[in-house]
Each structure stands twice: as C-alpha cells, then as structure tokens.
Design a protein around this nucleic acid. Structure first.
Length: 158
DNA sequence: GCCAACGTTGGC
DNA sequence: GCCAACGTTGGC
C-alpha cells in the first residue's frame, strides 16, 4: 500500500463537501499537471490511503484521511466544454488527463497545520514542506505518514 | 495583495 | 534544444 497527499482548496472543494457526497465518495478530477497526472494514472492503487490537505485558506492543514477506491481512469471533465477543466487538446481516443475516485475514511481528530508540520524534524523530506512545492498530488513516505498520524494525538503541547 | 517558485509556451 | 516571457500556485 502506498501513501499520498491530495491538495485541495476548501473554497472549491473541501472536506465539508466530501462529507456531503453519497458514500462520502468523489472523483478527484481537474488535475492538470503532468507529474501529478502520472501519479494518478500509474502509481495510485485501490486501497492506498491519502491525506486530504487544505491549501489557499486561512489555516493550510491536513484535515482528513481518504482511501483510493478506484484506480486511474480518464478524467471526463477534460472533454466537457462546459467544464472549468475543459482541455480542447485532450483527445478522448488518447486521454491526456486522469483521475481516481476517493472515499473519506475519517476526518482527523484535529487539523494538523502546515506550520506545525514544518516544526517537526521527523518530517524533513516531506514533499509538502519542500520550498516551492506546488504538486497537488504527492507521494508520502511511510515513515512520514506514521509521523503525521502520531501528531494527531500528540496535540499542540510541546 | 505580494512575490517566489515553478510549469508551460513559443520564437528562434 | 535553448530560454525569455508569461501564467499559476500558494504561503504569508
């Protein structure tokens, strides 16, 4: 099993939106970056888990754990002229963009902010913390995954 | 709103 | 294939 981090802007689609979806399940569409696309298409498998991360908001933070419930398949919004994510250069016969389906496993008992993550030496090397990191789909090393999970119950006291 | 970092585009 | 210009991301 692999671990991931999925960025989203809560003003666009966040944990609260996911919680209201049937089965708390959602296609993770609209990714338009080749590096992220490759991960969605080739590397993410059913049963993998991912942190849901809120960006571009008041307190950027990891807020939930989701499971990958469907592996990579073509992103239909790329073919839909009505979609914000429409890409006229994407050919249905050779799809350019891919998505997976995710399902909420559970919200974290508390959000773990970017600021707090940056303070943890054991998270050195986490892609999210890299200077200038912008990738919206990121791999998370197993040791980093467990370190973040441990933070959930550690609280802010230190 | 600022701006650094990064990806993409397109002329050559 | 180089690289400048431009657009986007995203923390602050």
């Amino acid at each position: 099993m692999n671990y991931w981090l999925l960025k989203t802007e809560p003003s666009c689609f966040g944990l609260a939106d996911l919680q209201q979806r049937p089965d708390q399940r959602e296609p993770w569409d609209g990714v338009r970056n080749y590096q992220a696309r490759n991960l969605l298409r080739d590397a993410m498998h059913v049963g993998d888990q991912a942190f849901l991360y809120h960006s571009s908001c008041k307190v950027p933070a990891v807020v939930a754990i989701v499971a990958i419930v469907r592996a990579g398949y073509p992103d239909p919004t790329a073919f839909d002229p009505q979609s914000r994510h429409f890409d006229p250069a994407s050919d249905p016969a050779a799809p350019r963009w891919y998505q997976v389906d995710i399902q909420l496993l559970r919200p974290l008992r508390r959000p773990i902010s970017l600021t707090e993550l940056r303070q943890r030496p054991e998270l050195d090397g986490l892609e999210l913390l890299r200077r200038g990191s912008r990738l919206s789909v990121q791999p998370v090393a197993e040791r980093h995954w467990h370190a973040i999970m441990a933070l959930e119950d550690a609280g802010n006291a230190r």
